[in-house]
Amino acid sequence: EVHFESHGEEQAMRVVKMLKKRNLTVEVKVENNKWIITAK
């Protein structure tokens, strides 16, 4: 499981795309203006 924190939507979306290319399940949450990305 991979956790990634991002402060910007643009950066977060880039990471999500990259993770999805690896056929991982990606969950995105926004907490306290931080984008929290979890990949399994």
Rank of each mutant, 00 (worst) to 15 (best):
E31D: 08
K17P: 00
T38Q: 03
F4K: 03
K21W: 10
T38K: 07
G8A: 13
G8P: 02
E31G: 03
F4M: 05
W35N: 01
K40N: 08
R14D: 05
L19S: 02
M18T: 04
M18Q: 07
E27I: 13
R14I: 10
K34A: 03
E5S: 07
N23I: 04
E1N: 09
L19V: 01
A39L: 09
V2H: 13
L24V: 05
M13Q: 07
S6A: 15
K40Y: 14
I36A: 01
I37W: 00
M18I: 10
A12G: 03
E27G: 03
M13H: 05
V16W: 02
H7A: 12
V30D: 01
N32P: 03
R22L: 15
T25M: 12
S6G: 09
L19W: 04
N23E: 04
V28A: 01
E1V: 13
E1Y: 12
E10H: 09
L19M: 03
A12D: 01
W35F: 07
L19Y: 04
K34Q: 05
E31Y: 09
N32A: 07
V2N: 04
I37N: 00
V30M: 11
L24W: 14
E31F: 09
S6R: 13
N32G: 13
K21G: 08
Q11N: 08
E1M: 13
T25E: 11
K21P: 01
N23Q: 08
V16L: 08
R14N: 07
K17W: 12
L24Q: 03
V26N: 00
F4H: 03
R22W: 15
K20Q: 13
K34I: 14
H3E: 06
V16D: 01
N32T: 04
K40E: 05
V16N: 02
K17A: 14
N32D: 10
V28W: 11
N32K: 08
A39P: 02
V15Y: 08
M18V: 07
F4C: 15
L24I: 07
A12H: 02
I36M: 05
E5D: 04
K40F: 13
N33A: 04
N33F: 09
A12W: 09
R14A: 11
A39C: 14
L19Q: 01
K40T: 12
L24G: 02
K17V: 14
E5I: 15
Q11S: 09
M18N: 06
K34L: 13
T25G: 03
V2R: 06
H3K: 12
M13A: 08
K40V: 10
E27M: 11
F4L: 08
I36R: 02
K29E: 03
W35P: 00
K29R: 13
L24D: 02
H3Y: 14
Q11P: 06
V16A: 06
E1D: 10
E1C: 13
A12R: 02
E5N: 05
K40P: 04
N32S: 05
T38C: 09
V16R: 01
E9V: 09
Q11A: 12
N23T: 02
N23D: 05
V15T: 04
K20N: 06
W35R: 00
I37K: 00
W35Q: 00
H3F: 12
E9H: 11
W35G: 00
V15E: 02
N32W: 05
K34F: 08
L19T: 00
A39M: 08
K40L: 09
